[in-house]
Nucleic acid binder design. Sequence first.
DNA 1: AAACATACATACAGAAATGTATGTATGTTT
DNA 2: AAACATACATACATTTCTGTATGTATGTTT
Lengths: 200, 200
Amino acid sequence: MRRTKEDSEQTWSAILDAAERLFSEKGIAATTLETISRAAGVTRGAFYWHFKDKSDLMAAMRSRRTLPQQELLLLAAERGHEDPLGLLEIAGHEVLATFEVDEGQQRLFRIFSNHGEDSEVAGWIAQHDRDVFDLVRGVAERAQQVGMLNPAFAPDEAAVLMLVTINGLLSEWLRSRSFPLSTLGRKILSVQMSLLKRPQ
Amino acid sequence: MRRTKEDSEQTWSAILDAAERLFSEKGIAATTLETISRAAGVTRGAFYWHFKDKSDLMAAMRSRRTLPQQELLLLAAERGHEDPLGLLEIAGHEVLATFEVDEGQQRLFRIFSNHGEDSEVAGWIAQHDRDVFDLVRGVAERAQQVGMLNPAFAPDEAAVLMLVTINGLLSEWLRSRSFPLSTLGRKILSVQMSLLKRPQ
DNA sequence: AAACATACATACAGAAATGTATGTATGTTT
DNA sequence: AAACATACATACATTTCTGTATGTATGTTT
């Protein structure tokens, strides 16, 4: 029996790790609390000690890691405002590069993008999406004000293009693994940015 | 009691309609056969008469409608081979335009894209994705042979760009509904195609 | 108009998962 | 070192869904 605080935190992590792996492999609904607990080397007693129920586990799982787009938010925020579109391009590429090697992020993204189902999860995703969209649109608006945005595109439209491309790349790569995410992603992003910039 | 063949087919449709709606709203796992049956105005007895189980229902649901990308396949196949990229652009736009007004297709897409979970469903999706990818890559290869493909892009890369954009547009629009799918989609597709074509 | 098949409804049995209650060995505090 | 809290394991009660078996009213065939 393990009973120290360190041991307890280790159990907490083990349960979350096991759940994350099982969820991303078999799906949330198909994974039982018994399965999770046994995979973590404990019983359901331990699970119910640390978490109220499966939904509570999901909340902990989500707040334990940063989602890829969340990273975009941070990256874009901590930088200056000159050349807004260049900023977006760099931040976008770093998101892809990070995602490509961070298996935890991949599992989390797979789990949560496969679940517009659950109303709670859907709520988190929706809120998060709105935050990211607002940020990107804000950047596009600044670009417009500085005259660096192709007049053929409204800020809203530029933001949609950015997000569609990034989310599309992440999803498609996760499913097929048929292309080098970072390499091809950089190429595509760069080419799209040149489109958004060029006054043509 | 209804017992004629017409009535029976009507029951069959009613069950599928109810299931489609409930699945796209609450998710597959969270929807019980009892709920489906009652929503269709029948009992589980009727359900088990028409379908073996939930998985059988899913198969019927999938083969009842055409997926959006399936439509792309058909559209691209029934046309000639001159100007392959222009063909892709037109087919892509028609996919978006159809999807925007076809609520059944929207529900089906939502249901199946939210379920890389289930192994059967995942298998169908994977196979389907491969088919579509192969088609698009084939078109890109023909474009390359005719010298109409921007040499900066390999056929594989062009296909990824196409599919990422279309799937991304469909997913993002389905979640946010924050932009006119067909209008903005046409704009984005057209601009991307000009990129793939232009020898720059 | 029997005889039979169809299209369901109803009833029941079983499994499986959840939640809770309780037991207990070990740490922690005083 | 006694008293208490922690971190679980074990056992049980309950729910819930599924699958199947059976009943039955209506169509269909001969």
